[in-house]
Design a protein around this nucleic acid. Sequence first.
DNA 1: CGGATTCTGCACCGATCGGTGCGAAATCGA
DNA 2: TCGATTTCGCACCGATCGGTGCAGAATCCG
Lengths: 199, 199
Amino acid sequence: MEQVRRGRPRAFDANEALEQALVVFWEHGYEGASLALLTEAMGISRKSMYAAFGNKEELFLKVLQRYEAGPGAYVRQAVGAPTARAVARAYLEGAVRAGTQPGRPAGCLGVRAALSVGVTGQTVQDVMTSWRAESQAGLRDRFQRAVDEGDLPADADPDVIARYLTTVADGVSVQATGGASPAALQHVVEVALRHWPPA
Amino acid sequence: MEQVRRGRPRAFDANEALEQALVVFWEHGYEGASLALLTEAMGISRKSMYAAFGNKEELFLKVLQRYEAGPGAYVRQAVGAPTARAVARAYLEGAVRAGTQPGRPAGCLGVRAALSVGVTGQTVQDVMTSWRAESQAGLRDRFQRAVDEGDLPADADPDVIARYLTTVADGVSVQATGGASPAALQHVVEVALRHWPPA
DNA sequence: CGGATTCTGCACCGATCGGTGCGAAATCGA
DNA sequence: TCGATTTCGCACCGATCGGTGCAGAATCCG
């Protein structure tokens, strides 16, 4: 796996640079994050960035992977919860926590970036769309399993429940971006989960 | 009110031009809507646009007023509904309808534009923020009145209910932008309104 | 000590950004 | 008809966009 290093070694840590790029994309969206902003935050020159990550689009995709494994991990973790209700709670509370972390941009990178992509980033647009679709499908499948196992009533609609939860989570992200406090959003989550199953 | 027209008359209808600008801003957000896109859609030259509307920022603010009076009118109309529950239904169904109108960009101009504004449009950012705050305050006041009138239980929290509904509406807008169908979003609304009051 | 290879800094590319200067065209009151 | 006034089309402004050419610096293997 580890290649023999030849030539001049790079003078920066790729992971650290990706972390800084993540913050910039998170804060400004895909198109709003200019090369000047990105390279300044990453502490490297344009040329080093292109040599290490390809181009802006590939950099964003790598950042997206990093986000998925870090702040956005709650999505995958939620479906592992033991009951359908616990899944819903983990998912929504994860959205609140990820969207209101101190020292990090507010809201969800996925929501913020997806809504601000123009014609320039068609590939990015497609990736974000399929990513969101996958998350929702994951929830749907999990709730279908809950129906099969009797954890949810037989007449419950996994598709609608999944859609409802992702909608609330999206709203939480928008609210967080607008400056809503974690406490206020936690209240929203309590309301959304007060009655279960919701459908 | 009507001034005496002197000099060469303009060769376009200002309202029609604003309508086209609305679509472009709605589709591309504030910063994503370039002068080239805007003027092409409006069918006028850059110079005519600046003479008629000032600059890009003022144009957007005028477009925002137009949106508020048109597709976004459901927000003000909702609080006029006779009962708290009818207010909530009118608000959420209005968000679905406005966000999935055929022949128009998906989602809510407010949400789409607000999330994609960068450092360039600080004024626009502030306006959008206060606009969203006003909408939420309007709902909160309406629910407070409902509590006072006995339409909602005395222990209901108007602030939380308003926050919950705006969060769901924001989520509906995000989902609509992502291509969700009106029917799917209507199901979400039914789930959100199934139990009342929610808090 | 070579070359071979890789990374870095700087200057630069064409394209596009929001915004303007200028002169011609079109309408007014007189 | 004649200025005064306003709009219009075109070309252009400096700034910034994402991306690159090039020369030198730093490391490898031999």
